[in-house]
Amino acid sequence: MGACKIFMYVALLAITSYVALGTDPNQLQDFCVGVNEPLEGLFVNGVFCKDPMRVSPDDFVFKGLNPGDTDNKLGFAATVVQATNLGGLNTLGISLARLDFAPYGLNPPHTHPRATEIFTVLEGTFYVGFVTSNPPQGPNKLFTKLLNKGDVFVFPQGLIHFQFNVGHTPGFGISGLSSQNPGLITIANAVFGSDPPISVDVLAKGFQIQDNLVKYLQDQFGSPNNY
């Protein structure tokens, strides 16, 4: 009986330890306004914390969440608000972005490795979706929806997703992200625009396409994007 209780205690400790380590740690202060230069030498979440006695209301304000320039190949622009341009967000675990789309503008397939995204349509009609990670059997499943003004859609953390303005007029929305540094991997840019480039042989075999098509795609994505 005693051995059984010990086993249960050990199992419970393992489970609670896993839960504790499987989530972001709670912050240890009210705020940690990020600054570029150290004032007290405290380095948290990639930036130095501002002396709390020197913090002002301005540290918690971002002004100018205005429309972005969608005059590019994709017809898309993202204006991101995160700890790098709003110091008061540091350590709070959230960020947001304004997403602007020209008619038929596209935010191409991409992932946020460290954040779930919740997208709210403020203007326009959008075809959105995400793809599941590799299942044990069968193909990856695509979840899509047509969204109108006022609709909300969630993209789970780390999964490939996209937003496409299918309307004849410009559209935009706001995305909230569950990390102050969600990360961004645009699939085509990462695969075909890396520096140095991935081997043509690797990409041709991986995508089951001809070498000349790989080279063409590398030419298209080899320069930095303008958004």
Rank of each mutant, 00 (worst) to 15 (best):
N107K: 09
F126V: 05
T111D: 02
V10I: 15
G183W: 07
V202G: 04
Q82E: 10
S56N: 13
N72R: 00
V128I: 10
G176Y: 06
A190E: 09
V154R: 09
F207S: 10
D151P: 06
N90H: 02
H112C: 04
G171C: 05
Q163E: 15
P67F: 03
V166G: 04
A11F: 14
G124N: 05
N36T: 11
Q208V: 12
L74Y: 14
Y104A: 13
S17Y: 07
F130D: 07
N90R: 11
I6H: 12
A190W: 04
F126W: 03
N226H: 11
F162L: 14
H161E: 07
D201R: 03
N45D: 15
D211V: 03
D30S: 14
G105R: 01
S56A: 13
Q27T: 13
N181P: 07
G129A: 12
G158T: 04
G176A: 14
G2F: 12
N85R: 06
G34F: 01
S179C: 09
K50G: 02
L21F: 13
I209H: 06
Q82I: 02
Y127Q: 04
Q180N: 12
K141G: 01
Y18L: 14
L147E: 00
V61I: 15
G173D: 02
V128A: 15
A20Y: 12
G93E: 03
A102D: 10
P57C: 12
V10W: 09
K141R: 11
M1D: 13
H110E: 10
T91L: 03
Q29P: 00
I198Y: 15
R114W: 10
C32E: 04
G34Q: 03
K149M: 09
L89V: 06
S175A: 15
S133R: 07
N165K: 07
Y227T: 04
F143D: 01
N140W: 00
G124F: 06
S133N: 12
L99Q: 01
L12C: 14
I185T: 14
A11H: 12
P182V: 07
L146Q: 11
L12Y: 13
G124T: 02
Y127H: 10
F119D: 00
G150K: 02
F164S: 02
K50I: 03
L177T: 01
F130R: 03
Q220R: 11
V128M: 08
G158L: 07
P182N: 06
L217I: 06
G193N: 04
G87H: 08
G222Y: 12
T91V: 11
Q220E: 13
V152K: 01
F126M: 09
T144M: 09
V202S: 13
F153W: 06
F207C: 09
L39D: 02
Y127P: 00
I209Y: 13
T125M: 07
V33T: 02
N225W: 01
G41D: 02
L42S: 07
N85S: 13
V128F: 11
L39T: 08
F164Y: 15
L203G: 05
T132F: 10
G173H: 01
A3F: 10
F172M: 01
V80E: 05
V200C: 06
G167E: 10
K73T: 13
M8D: 14
D59K: 05
V47Q: 05
T125D: 14
P197F: 05
R54F: 11
N36M: 12
I15K: 09
P197K: 00
V33M: 03
F221G: 00
K50R: 06
